[in-house]
Measured scan of single mutants.
Amino acid sequence: MGFKLLSKLLVYLTASIMAIASPLAFSVDSSGEYPTVSEIPVGEVRLYQIADGVWSHIATQSFDGAVYPSNGLIVRDGDELLLIDTAWGAKNTAALLAEIEKQIGLPVTRAVSTHFHDDRVGGVDVLRAAGVATYASPSTRRLAEVEGNEIPTHSLEGLSSSGDAVRFGPVELFYPGAAHSTDNLIVYVPSASVLYGGCAIYELSRTSAGNVADADLAEWPTSIERIQQHYPEAQFVIPGHGLPGGLDLLKHTTNVVKAHTNRSVVE
């Protein structure tokens, strides 16, 4: 069995187990497998329904001669939608809004960016022009300005110390501490036991640490421990890039980060 097929099978099995364990909360999309990078042309966006009122959005972007996937989250909030992270750029984010209108038909009224990198804030200006209120932590807003990236308009308070959590509509926002970046936030959907790890969490097929220019490698494993301790009931975990899975993604990420750190020390 090929690795790609095995990865998709694991996603399907995880979703099936969740649907059985929580039949009222989960209505997993039966329309197909989780979209992969090879299936999404740059400039297009796919939506994948995880649970009743919960979707991931998947886009792709060219970077350094390669094409990478990027995940975000959409959560229903009454007759409105909360968006977590842009679709990595203005063109993708405009396509995301169009796809949401086509498939869901509810307005996106608020959006949260989970850290300051372009795959999370690139497209904020498109959201703002569409009347979406954009939010991020003060740290993310400051770092985005320093980096020359787009800056969300509103500040999220109460997320300055490791372990801080605040309720934001249908989700809980959690600051686990520094990891992929010093400002990275985690998003949890309690009604569906869905954990969105953003770039602080890796997919299972990833074996290298990737972009760690703004990471705190020493603190990252401790931050992941905080996530595990705060959300032990999480059933569906979405990484910032690639295929979702279960809580095993947290341990896998820790292993990859520690291996990278150990290699760096040896070198």
Score class of each variant (00 low, 15 high):
Q228P: 11
N184A: 14
F174L: 14
A213L: 14
A95W: 03
L249A: 13
T222N: 04
H252Y: 03
G158M: 06
V37R: 09
P35Q: 14
S208G: 09
S160W: 10
H117D: 00
G43K: 06
Y34K: 13
P232W: 06
K8M: 12
R263F: 10
V256S: 10
D248A: 04
Y202T: 02
I238K: 02
L143F: 12
Y34F: 05
T253E: 01
S27M: 07
E145K: 15
L9H: 03
V75D: 01
V132P: 01
S7R: 10
S193G: 11
G131T: 15
S191T: 11
E101S: 14
S30G: 10
K251S: 03
A259G: 09
S38P: 14
V67N: 12
V75Y: 04
A136I: 11
I58R: 07
A25K: 13
S38V: 09
V189S: 04
G123R: 01
S137Y: 02
L185P: 00
I74P: 00
A200R: 01
R46L: 09
V37T: 08
K4W: 09
S56W: 08
T114F: 00
Y12M: 14
A51D: 12
L13V: 13
L13I: 02
S70Q: 13
A218F: 12
L159R: 01
A87R: 01
E225H: 15
L156V: 07
S208F: 05
L24T: 12
K251A: 06
E33T: 10
P221A: 08
V265F: 06
T182C: 14
T114I: 00
L204M: 15
G163N: 04
A98P: 06
G158Q: 08
S56G: 07
T60P: 11
A130T: 08
W55L: 09
H57D: 07
Y196H: 03
V256N: 10
P170D: 03
F116T: 12
D216C: 04
I186K: 00
P35S: 05
V166M: 05
S223Y: 02
E233Q: 12
A98L: 05
N262Y: 06
T109Y: 04
P152C: 14
L156M: 07
I84S: 11
T14A: 13
L10S: 09
K91D: 12
P170Q: 04
L159H: 09
F174S: 11
G53E: 10
